[in-house]
Simulated scan of single mutants.
Amino acid sequence: MPEGDTVWLAAKRMNTALAGATLRRGEFRLPHLAALDLAGATVREVVPRGKHMLIRLADDHTLRTHYRMDGSWHIYRPGTRWRGGPGYDVRVVLATDEWECVGYRLHDVEYVPTSQEDTLVGHLGPDILGPDWDLEEALRRIRDRPEEQVGVAILDQRNLAGIGNLYKVESLFLAGVHPWARVADVDDRLAPLVERAQRLMKANLERPEQSTTGDLRRGYDHWVYGRKGKPCRRCRTPILMGDQGPHLQERVTYWCPRCQAARSAIDPQARTGEPGRPRPVATPG
């Protein structure tokens, strides 16, 4: 699933293409919005909200889209061949005289009065990249569930919006925090952890590449993410990988068992290989 910085950059580019322009084409290839035609509507602005994109129109309506795992927006000049995928994957087309914005495999596409945006994104915590960012409120929400695993808590968009799995994994490593540690057991490290994630995301805002090491070369751009079994860049211990999160919502998690050694007891089931639990892999490869 795209991280908040990816959505931020996409919204910036969409805003450049659409803000202030009148749509000559605004069609939806989704059953619940198939009858909606936005041709003639003027776009006021395009803004990100966590991992959601909000396209606000001058008539005080908002179009919300979400990428989830496979969605994307592509921007083309009129007459240019669309290359984002087969035609049957197109969900939304918003075109002006100068640009064509084509949404592929988009999810959670909704059209509501702007005054009702909270029905779509009101459940989200403070946006780590947004103007509403409030560190203390984010920490309060995280601490409300002290027994939660910290790796699950910082990924929960109800606590703070925008952090995805990559920044979760990398921030935990840089903070030396075990992903399965309880929130209550790492309370003194929560603020630096969240602030680190924010700095990493801001460093990548203006580019599609996401590097947490400062090196953009492929294979050198991450500390532990995607590096199962490879030596830790700090201590050379093989990186472990496991699934973390509620059943059917598990996210692949990477960590160094030495640099992120637990300072407190970890749930014994966390290493059994059960669904939703990490399955350590230490074989170099």
Rank of each mutant, 00 (worst) to 15 (best):
P2C: 02
E3Y: 07
A19P: 03
A21Q: 13
L23K: 09
R29K: 11
L36S: 11
E45T: 13
P48F: 03
G50W: 15
G50L: 15
I55C: 12
A58E: 15
Y67C: 00
S72L: 13
H74F: 07
G84A: 12
G84M: 11
A95N: 04
W99L: 00
E100H: 12
E100Q: 15
C101M: 09
Y104I: 07
L106F: 07
D118C: 01
D118R: 14
L120D: 02
P126V: 08
I128L: 14
G130C: 05
P131F: 02
D144I: 02
V150Y: 04
V152I: 12
L155S: 05
L155Y: 00
R158H: 07
N159G: 14
L160P: 01
L166S: 01
E170G: 07
A181Q: 05
D188V: 06
Q198V: 14
M201P: 01
K202R: 13
L205E: 10
E206G: 04
R207Y: 03
R217I: 06
C235A: 05
R236V: 07
G242H: 06
V252Q: 14
T253K: 06
W255K: 02
P257W: 09
Q260L: 07
D267Q: 04
Q269H: 09
Q269D: 14
Q269C: 05
A270Q: 11
E274V: 03
R279G: 11
R279V: 13
P280V: 02
